[in-house]
């Protein structure tokens, strides 16, 4: 038996043109090839990291002349944004408040709907329905934001004026509603994933203790998936705060803080809209200028998204750990 095998192998080995041992040249080539391949992949991976880094450096560098030469408390606390006046003043408070205001308002609409939809998709409907509905919801994320913007200005704005008697239809409510729709796919998708990632055991244990479906969802599933749900909400907020075209078209862009603060029917202006709308005509001159002020606004925006990103990463990793444990 043993002998037969060797006999059978020998002709094959002889037929192979390839010697068993590599020549030093081939060995070296293989060695270099493997390292070159790794190096290439490393470079490709680093490029994206590098791009993020370069954007950060670029934005910060271009804002330095402004941040160094302008009164920072005035920049952050004044409501007077008149960059093109003869005696310009760069008070970005209305813009910062506008960005946060409209994003938070969007979340007020999007979070209940999004989380309920996530629970519905993962807990209640059949797998078949879920597999149809989830991709459709995700298509919402693929609609170009300018299309949302047109809808906001041509359909939603007149509709709000007619049905709610607002003096102006392009206002914080309009922008918040559209942003809510845009944040929904993120919230539903990430939320549904984190709820689905929970093990069967949790639900079965709950049912076996006599809990109803509602009790199981409210008292067991949602608390257990809270890390992932928080991450979903934070990601949705990032989507809303970074959105430009929609807020530029839907929010009215008035540089004011709503008064009283809960009055969503007033026009507001966000940081993103300001940068997009004004960069084209801001001359590139050194020192404290309109352009460097816009870059400084960009730095604030970047800081906000970085903070939100860190928060969402923290909760996402917690969600992963929690899912791993069960």
């Amino acid at each position: 038996m043993d002998r037969d095998v060797t006999v059978a192998l020998e002709p094959a080995a002889e037929a192979s043109p390839r010697p068993l041992a590599l020549t030093p040249g081939e060995d070296l080539l293989g060695f270099v090839g493997a390292y070159l391949g790794r190096a290439l992949l490393l470079v490709v991976t680093c490029t994206s990291v590098l791009v993020v880094f370069l954007i950060l450096v670029f934005v910060v560098l271009r804002s330095v002349p402004f941040l160094g030469g302008y009164d920072l408390t005035k920049f952050l606390a004044s409501q007077d944004w008149r960059p093109t006046a003869d005696d310009p003043s760069f008070g970005a408070l209305t813009l910062i408040v506008g960005s946060i205001y409209v994003s938070v308002a969007a979340l007020v609409f999007a979070v209940p709907v999004g989380i309920l939809a996530a629970v519905f998709l993962s807990e209640i409907v059949s797998w078949k329905v879920r597999n149809v509905v989830k991709p459709v919801v995700e298509i919402l994320a693929a609609i170009p934001s300018v299309a949302y913007g047109f809808f906001a200005i041509l359909v939603l704005a007149p509709w709000l004026q007619e049905h709610f008697g607002f003096t102006t239809g392009t206002n914080a409510l309009n922008a918040a509603l559209i942003l809510a729709v845009m944040a929904l796919p993120t919230i539903i998708s990430v939320g549904e994933d984190s709820i689905s990632a929970l093990g069967r055991e949790l639900r079965e244990a709950s049912y076996s203790l006599g809990a109803t479906r509602l009790e199981t969802v409210v008292k067991v599933v949602i608390p257990a998936a809270h890390s992932g749900l928080i991450a979903a909400v934070v990601l949705g907020m990032m989507r809303a705060i970074g959105e430009t075209m929609v807020v530029w078209m839907a929010s009215g862009n008035a540089t004011q803080i709503p008064h009283p603060w809960w009055d969503l029917s007033q026009s507001i202006r966000t940081m993103t809209a300001t940068i997009a709308g004004e960069m084209g005509e801001a001359p590139d001159i050194g020192g404290v200028s309109h352009r460097s002020a816009l870059f400084a606004v960009g730095v604030i925006l970047l800081l906000m998204t970085v903070v939100l990103n860190v928060i969402s990463e923290y909760f996402l990793s917690r969600a992963k750990k929690a899912a791993g444990k069960t």
Partner: peptide, 16 residues
């Protein structure tokens, strides 16, 4: 309020 094109300005006035 600020809008970013002539047609948008026209559309806003037309509907408000």
């Amino acid at each position: 309020e600020y809008v970013n094109s002539n047609p948008q300005a026209q559309a806003r006035v037309k509907t408000t």
